[in-house]
Simulated assay, not measured.
Amino acid sequence: MSEVNLLAIVLAAASTFVIGGVWYSALFAAPWQRAADVSDAQLATGAPRIFVGAAALSLVMAATLAPFIGTEGVVFGAAAGAAAGIGWVGCALGVVYLFERRSLTLFAIDAGYFAVAYPAMGAIIGALQ
């Protein structure tokens, strides 16, 4: 971990909030809310716990991605992020969603978010390592 740039990890984690803010509000708010069966009342409660938890988990995601990228640069970082976001996270979500009988719409929205967020994290880490 000593060779990992902590600023890169923090910025990569922060990027998930920027992307998530656009993804789950401007782009897919209503379809996600319907597919996830989340009411307006549910969205109005628990925000501090959710955002603190999401920030902590985003830091873990970025910190575990960084050693895989190393000092290979921005292009490799983005490619590694895409492989992780699509191949690991997207597929893992797919398995869980199949067993939970969740909709293809919800899978596409959630997996699509990670397919965008991970390459962004990887590019940031690759650029700053």
Results as ranks from 00 to 15, higher is better:
V89D: 00
T45I: 07
L57T: 15
S58R: 09
E100S: 08
G73M: 01
M121I: 14
S103F: 04
V18P: 09
V60E: 01
M61D: 09
F99W: 06
G46I: 04
S15Y: 02
I50Q: 11
V38G: 01
L59S: 06
V74T: 09
G122M: 00
T16A: 10
L7V: 15
V96L: 12
L93Y: 11
I9P: 07
R49D: 11
Y118T: 09
V18Y: 06
T16R: 09
L6E: 15
F114Y: 07
Q42N: 04
G126V: 07
A26Y: 05
G20W: 05
G126Y: 00
A30L: 13
L128K: 04
G112C: 03
A83F: 11
A79M: 08
G53R: 02
F107K: 05
I50S: 10
A80V: 13
T105Y: 06
L59W: 06
G87N: 04
S103L: 06
V89M: 03
I86V: 12
R101G: 05
F114V: 04
V74Y: 03
A47W: 11
L43D: 00
W88R: 11
A79E: 02
E72Q: 08
V60G: 00
A111D: 09
G20D: 02
L59H: 09
W88Q: 06
G46K: 09
A56T: 04
M1P: 14
R102E: 13
E3G: 15
I124L: 13
E100N: 08
W32H: 01
D40C: 09
A8W: 08
C91T: 15
Y118M: 08
A120W: 05
A35F: 14
I9V: 13
E100H: 07
F107V: 13
G81M: 04
G77V: 04
F68S: 06
M121F: 14
L128Y: 03
A26E: 06
I125V: 10
A111N: 10
A55L: 12
I69Q: 00
G112I: 01
G87K: 11
R101D: 05
L57N: 14
D37A: 11
G85W: 02
A14I: 10
A47D: 07
